[in-house]
Amino acid sequence: MTSKPSVLVTGASTGIGAAYAERFARRGHDLVLVARNTARLEALADRLRADTGATIDILSADLADTTQRVAIEARLRDDARIGILINNAGTSLGGTFIEQAIDDIDRLVALNTTALVHLAHAIAPRLAQAGEGAIVNIGSAVGLVPEFGMPVYGATKAFVLHLSQALSLQLASQGVYVQAVLPAATRTEIWGHAGVDVDTLSGVMEVDDLVDAALVGFDRREPVTIPPLHDVGQWEAFEAARQAMIPGFAQSRPADRYLATA
C-alpha cells in the first residue's frame, strides 16, 4: 500500500467506533463506516468530511443479520484500499443467565463473535497476501473476570481475546498486525442495552481516553492492549503463568490428584 490505507470501522455511529473513526480520519485515512443507524452515520461522516477532508463511505447494516453482513464481508474481501479493520460492533444484555431470553442471547453471540469472525476472515487473506495491514478486535476486561456475573457477554469477550492472540501468532509473520483491545467500564451506550445507568458506576473511562490509549498500543504494535490496567506487570505475570502451563498439557496419564485412591 503506497498511500495510507482506508479503515473500515464497525459500530461506528457512536461511542468507541465513532471515536476510532475520528482519530483515523485526523490521521489522514479514508473511512468506511458501518452501523445500523444511518442518520447517525451520515451526521458523523458529514462532520469528519468537513473537518478532515477524508473520503467516507457509509454502509448501513445489522451485522447480526447474516444477509446484511454479506455485503460488508464482500467489501472487505474486494476493496484493496481497506487495510485496517476495526472490529468494534457489539452489544450486551441485562439480567442473569436464566433471566435472559434465548433469542437475545443468540443475537448477542451472533454480533459479538460470529460477525467479528466473519469480518476478520473476509479481510485476513487479502492482508496476508499484501504483506501488511491490521485487524483490531474490541474485547473487554470482562472476558477475564467471570466474577463480574456476565456469563454470555464475558464468554464472547474471552473468545475475542483468544481469537486475537491466536491470529496474531498466525498472521504476524505475514505482515498482518492483530490487536485485542480490552476496555473495562467505558461511557458508551452499551450500558443502556444492559439496563444499567452508567452514571451510577465508579471508575468509568471516557471514550476519548480509551481510544487514545488503545491507539498508543496500536502504534506500538501491542498484541493485547488493556487501557485501564495500570500495572502491566500483572498482565505479564498472567501471560507467563498461562504459558508455563502449556508443556504440562501434553500428558498420557491424568494428574495424580485425579487417580483413584486405594
Score class of each variant (00 low, 15 high):
residue 178 V to E: 00
residue 192 G to K: 08
residue 173 S to L: 15
residue 176 V to T: 12
residue 196 V to C: 06
residue 175 G to Y: 04
residue 196 V to F: 01
residue 194 A to N: 08
residue 196 V to S: 04
residue 189 E to H: 12
residue 190 I to M: 12
residue 179 Q to L: 12
residue 180 A to M: 06
residue 189 E to R: 11
residue 193 H to F: 11
residue 174 Q to M: 10
residue 195 G to I: 07
residue 191 W to C: 07
residue 187 R to G: 03
residue 171 L to Q: 05
residue 186 T to H: 02
residue 189 E to T: 15
residue 175 G to A: 09
residue 182 L to T: 00
residue 196 V to W: 08
residue 187 R to V: 00
residue 188 T to L: 06
residue 182 L to P: 00
residue 189 E to C: 11
residue 173 S to C: 13
residue 176 V to E: 01
residue 188 T to I: 03
residue 195 G to S: 10
residue 194 A to Q: 06
residue 182 L to C: 03
residue 176 V to A: 07
residue 196 V to A: 08
residue 180 A to W: 00
residue 172 A to D: 15
residue 177 Y to E: 03
residue 198 V to W: 11
residue 195 G to W: 10
residue 191 W to E: 10
residue 187 R to D: 08
residue 182 L to I: 09
residue 194 A to M: 14
residue 170 Q to I: 15
residue 190 I to E: 03
residue 187 R to N: 12
residue 174 Q to A: 15
residue 180 A to V: 08
residue 184 A to K: 09
residue 187 R to F: 13
residue 179 Q to E: 11
residue 189 E to N: 14
residue 174 Q to V: 15
residue 182 L to M: 09
residue 190 I to R: 06
residue 175 G to C: 10
residue 172 A to M: 08
residue 199 D to W: 14
residue 171 L to E: 10
residue 186 T to Y: 02
residue 176 V to H: 06
residue 179 Q to K: 05
residue 177 Y to M: 11
residue 187 R to Q: 10
residue 182 L to Q: 01
residue 187 R to Y: 09
residue 171 L to V: 14
residue 193 H to L: 13
residue 198 V to D: 03
residue 191 W to T: 09
residue 185 A to P: 04
residue 195 G to R: 07
residue 179 Q to D: 13
residue 183 P to W: 01
residue 189 E to A: 14
residue 191 W to Y: 13
residue 180 A to H: 00
residue 192 G to C: 08
residue 194 A to V: 07
residue 189 E to V: 09
residue 196 V to G: 03
residue 176 V to G: 05
residue 188 T to G: 05
residue 172 A to R: 13
residue 196 V to R: 07
residue 173 S to V: 12
residue 179 Q to I: 04
residue 171 L to N: 02
residue 183 P to M: 02
residue 188 T to H: 05
residue 171 L to D: 01
residue 183 P to D: 03
residue 180 A to T: 01
residue 180 A to E: 00
residue 173 S to M: 13
residue 182 L to W: 01
residue 198 V to H: 09
residue 174 Q to P: 12
residue 185 A to D: 07
residue 177 Y to S: 05
residue 176 V to R: 02
residue 177 Y to W: 04
residue 198 V to Y: 11
residue 188 T to R: 01
residue 194 A to S: 05
residue 181 V to K: 01
residue 170 Q to S: 15
residue 192 G to L: 03
residue 171 L to H: 12
residue 178 V to A: 02
residue 197 D to C: 06
residue 176 V to Q: 05
residue 199 D to H: 07
residue 173 S to T: 14
residue 180 A to Y: 01
